[in-house]
Nucleic acid binder design. Structure first.
Length: 120
RNA sequence: AGAGUUGGCCGAGGCAAUCGCUGUUUACAUCUGUAAAUAGAGGAAAGUCCGGGCUCCAAAGGGCAGAGUGCCAGGUAACGCCUGGGAAGCGUGAGCUUACGGAAAGUGCCACAGAAAUAUACCGCCUUUUUUUAACUAAAAAGGUAAGGGUGAAAAGGUGUGGUAAGAGCGCACCGCGUAACUGGUAACAGUUGCGGCAAGGUAAACCCCACUCGGAGCAAGACCAAAUAGGAGCUUAUGUGUAUACGAAAGUGUACAUACAGUGUGGCCCACACUUAGCUCGGGUAGGUUGCUUGAGGUGUUUGGUGACAAGCAUCCCAGAUAAAUGAUUGUCCACGACAGAACCCGGCUUAUCGGCUAACUCUUUUU
């Protein structure tokens, strides 16, 4: 645990079943353009999955852009949420935001999540 | 100098720092890590519209249906692509555009208009006869006529001239059309000469006819490894159960054989429901993983052949391979302030989107020398 900013493959949600279990039983935190589902896992670190549907952004370039920004932001903030699985879902009109707006939105989402975790 | 035509090339704006992601190699650790080095989206990666490779299935011959293509020659693995040529149309020009086979095989459709749409006499023009008038002046009847008018997408080639009562390919010249021969060309086609007075529109991206081509499905193709659960097959065993039998007064204990049938609970019973139902092996294949997966009709340079598309030879290079899916973020700085847009088995095309920059050849106009 010497590098808190690294983001290897084990820190992502990979398989279909992992996503499914989050959809079936989870808590929600939402923001105007983003929605987060979260759940405890048995690991020492957080894991994240990002979903950007075609309905949100029709062009692959825009979808990749949103994913990258969310992933990058998670990388910086992951230390706040040890032992949780989180799925971030982009909502509609997400594509109309520019980079800085989107980044602000994610920051707010992380703050809300952090408050939730402190309660528990 | 301006306007334009046709190609070719480049393009996450450039630089620096920090933090990250994916592959490969090396080293060290070892059970999937650490460190270093190195590589890391496009001209359209897009639309999925064609054509191939590859894989599996089917068939291995022929026919029908269906789909596609449609001037000629060449290129190619192949094509609906490309190159060269022909024809028609457009442009002053460089050039551009074309679904460019067949309408005397048949069917369908073409409103309305118009006298008439496989032919026609409405107006008009002309002749004859009768009546009439100063007068071939007017009228009627019979006939001739497709030159003129009007309608239409189309009225049986066009212009001129001769001819005629008026007219008419009725004759002639030129043009157009058809046809035969010859010449040039691989061919499409072009040219020359002769002959025919001339053959009634359009529509085949309407059916259709003719010629040629086409088996189907796709990398979620396909191949391999393989937990768990349910179900299947086989073998072994017998602790449960059944039968037989030995000992024993009985409880029970032992032996042999059969059997994974069945047993237990709820309930009076059947049915029903729930729970339990040995071990091993095989087959199957789910989750998951590996592979297919990037060395290829490859790139670059050069020589030769060809008008060209392209082909052949030689040299040289290895240039993304992800899998909920990697190439990003932040900061600083400079400028012309940054378009369209993200590989997903691989190639060849087409189409569409696109802020700009560079470059070659050519055309037109104007000015100067």
């Amino acid at each position: 645990m010497k590098n808190y900013l690294s983001f290897p493959r084990s820190h992502r949600l990979v398989s279909k079943s992992e996503y499914k279990s989050l959809f079936d039983e989870s808590n929600k935190v939402s923001q105007r353009y983003l929605l987060a589902l979260y759940k405890r896992n048995e690991k020492s670190h957080a894991r994240v999955g990002i979903i950007v549907g075609k309905r949100v952004a029709n062009h692959a370039v825009v979808r990749n852009q949103i994913k990258r920004i969310v992933r990058e932001s998670f990388r910086a903030n992951q230390i706040q949420f040890p032992g949780y699985d989180i799925v971030v879902i982009a909502r509609q009109q997400c594509d109309s935001l520019d980079k800085t707006q989107l980044r602000e939105g994610i920051e707010k989402l992380w703050q809300k999540l952090a408050i939730q975790f402190q309660k528990v």
